[in-house]
Design a protein around this nucleic acid. Structure first.
Length: 423
DNA sequence: TCTGGGGTCCTAGGACCC
DNA sequence: TCTGGGGTCCTAGGACCC
C-alpha cells in the first residue's frame, strides 16, 4: 500500500487563538510576544505584510506598532495549549493514525485513502476544524512527511488552493519545487542553507537532485534523509506514540536583573517546583539535576554563567527532594557582583516512576511524600497554579517575567469565561 | 530600558579496556 | 624516522524543530 501523509498546520496559531475570543482582532495586524514580552513569536498575515519578522525583539518594531496600530499581546500558553487539544481532538475523529507533531501541527496517515478525492477530504477536515474550534488550518498531502510540509507551504501561500494542496495530484511538481527556496524545506536551517547556497543549491528542486555522496558527507544522515524524502522515498515514519521524554527543563528570563543569592534561590525553587510537577504528570522520576544561571549576554557588562550538575542518590519525583539538591547547587555557583538575567533547572536521566530503585539506606517515608505531592498537585490543578507552594519559592517574586498584555484564560479559568451579550 | 523557552537527533572525540 | 588497533561508552557541541 503506498504511503500517504497529510500535514495539518494551524495558521498563525497563537494569533488565531486570540482572534477566536476577541473578533475585533480580525483583519488587523496582530503580534504575540514571547515570555517577558521579549520577542515576536506569532504574527497575523497583516503583521507579516508590514515586514515584522519572526523572533524580532519587540522594542525594535515599536515604530511599526505605533504607525500601523499593531495589536500586541503577551503569550497566553494556558489558552494555546487548551485550543491545541481541541484541534487535535477534532483531527482524531478523521483517523486513528495521528501524530501530534507540535502545539500547532499534526501529521495524519492517509495511507489506504487513495480511492477518494484527497483534496475534498482535506477540505472536509479543514471545515470541521474551523467550525468546531474556530482555528483556520492549512493542509498538505503527499507521499512523505517532507513533501507534505512542502504541500502545506503551497496551500498556505496560494489563494486558489483554499487551504488544501494535494501534491500527488500536482501535474508540475518540478515547477513547484523550483519555486521553493531550499531554506524553506523542513530540516534546512540557516547553517545548511548557507552551505547549500555556496554549492549552488538554491531551490527544493536543486536539493532533490543533489549528489548523494556530497550530501551524506556534509549534512550527515539527516541531510540524506531530507533528499530521499524530497524524491518521494519515505524515511520518516508516523510516530503515533510519543517516546518518553528524555529531559525536562524549566527556565525563564527575569523581569528585572537578579543580584542577590536569596532571589536567585527563590526563582530556582520556583522552576524546580514547576519541573517536578511536569515530572509527576509524565509519571517519571529523575536521577540527574542541573541548575544554571547566566548574566545578560546582550549587555556590555561583566558576564558570568555557570551550572551545577548533581547526581541524585535515588530517583525521585518529589519537589521536596529536588529542592534539597537544587538550592545548595545555586549556593555553589552563585557569584556576587553580577546582574543575572536568567536561571533554570534541567532534569535528565529520567526513569519511569514505577521502576524507582529504592536505596537500602534510604529511610525516608516514600509513601508519605507521594501523598503530599498528590495533595499539592490536586489543589493547584483545582484552584490554580501556585495556590499552595513551597516557602522557598518566595512570597513577592519580584523577579518574575512580565506579561503586560496577556489576554484572559478564556477556556481554562471559570473567572475568565467569555460572556455572550445580546446587543 | 527593552533580545523566549523547550525540545530532538547526530557526530566527533576522548576515556577506557583488552 | 619510528609511537598498535579496535571496540564501547560517554559527553559536548552543533544542527535542527516549533
Amino acid at each position: 500500500m503506498p504511503l500517504l501523509f497529510a500535514l495539518v498546520d494551524c495558521n498563525n496559531f497563537y494569533v488565531s487563538c486570540e482572534r477566536v475570543f476577541d473578533p475585533k482582532l480580525e483583519g488587523k495586524p496582530v503580534v504575540v510576544l514571547s515570555n517577558n514580552d521579549g520577542i515576536v513569536v506569532a504574527r497575523s498575515n497583516e503583521a507579516k505584510a508590514l515586514g515584522i519578522k519572526m523572533g524580532v525583539p519587540e522594542f525594535q518594531i515599536r515604530h511599526l506598532i505605533r504607525r500601523y496600530n499593531v495589536q500586541v499581546l503577551s503569550s497566553n500558553y494556558a489558552l494555546y495549549g487548551d485550543m491545541s487539544q481541541r484541534v487535535m481532538d477534532t483531527l482524531a475523529q478523521f483517523t486513528p493514525n495521528l501524530e501530534v507533531y507540535s502545539i500547532d501541527e499534526a501529521f495524519l496517515s492517509l495511507s489506504g485513502f487513495t480511492s477518494r478525492d484527497l483534496t475534498d477530504y482535506g477540505r472536509t477536515i479543514r471545515t470541521k476544524v474551523k467550525r468546531w474550534t474556530g482555528i483556520p488550518v492549512s493542509i498538505g498531502i503527499a507521499e512523505t512527511k517532507t513533501l507534505a510540509k512542502v504541500a502545506a507551504w503551497r496551500a498556505k501561500r496560494c489563494k486558489d488552493a483554499a487551504g488544501v494542496f494535494d501534491l500527488t495530484a500536482c501535474q508540475d511538481r518540478d515547477v513547484l519545487l523550483a519555486s521553493i527556496p531550499a531554506e524553506d524545506i523542513w530540516g534546512i536551517g540557516p547553517n545548511y542553507a548557507r552551505l547549500l547556497t555556496l554549492h549552488g543549491i538554491q531551490t527544493a528542486l536543486d536539493l532533490r537532485m543533489a549528489d548523494d555522496h556530497w550530501i551524506r558527507k556534509r549534512m550527515g544522515v539527516v541531510g540524506a534523509r531530507i533528499v530521499q524524502e524530497l524524491r518521494g522515498v519515505s524515511c520518516l515514519p508516523l510516530e503515533e506514540c510519543p517516546a518518553p521524554k528524555q529531559g525536562i527543563t524549566v527556565s525563564r528570563s527575569f523581569g528585572r536583573p537578579v543580584t542577590t543569592v536569596a532571589e536567585m534561590k527563590e526563582s530556582v525553587a520556583f522552576y524546580t517546583s514547576r519541573a517536578a510537577k511536569k515530572l509527576r504528570e509524565e509519571r517519571l522520576a529523575v536521577t540527574v539535576l542541573t541548575v544554571f544561571l547566566t548574566t545578560n549576554t546582550f549587555k556590555d557588562e561583566p558576564q558570568y554563567s555557570n551550572a551545577a550538575t548533581i547526581k541524585l542518590p535515588v530517583a525521585t519525583d518529589s519537589t521536596s527532594d529536588l529542592l534539597r539538591y537544587a538550592l545548595p547547587g545555586v549556593e555553589r555557583i552563585f557569584r556576587e557582583g553580577y546582574r543575572y538575567k536568567k536561571a533554570g533547572v534541567m532534569l535528565t536521566a529520567l526513569v519511569p516512576a514505577s521502576q524507582v530503585q529504592v536505596d537500602l539506606f534510604d529511610h525516608q517515608d516514600r509513601d508519605r511524600s507521594r501523598r503530599l505531592m498528590r495533595t499539592l498537585d490536586g489543589l493547584n490543578d483545582c484552584i490554580g497554579a501556585g495556590t499552595l507552594r513551597y516557602a522557598a519559592e518566595g512570597m513577592t517574586q519580584h523577579w518574575k517575567a512580565r506579561f503586560e498584555r496577556r489576554s484572559p484564560a478564556y477556556t481554562t479559568n471559570w473567572r475568565d469565561l467569555p460572556v455572550a451579550k445580546a446587543s
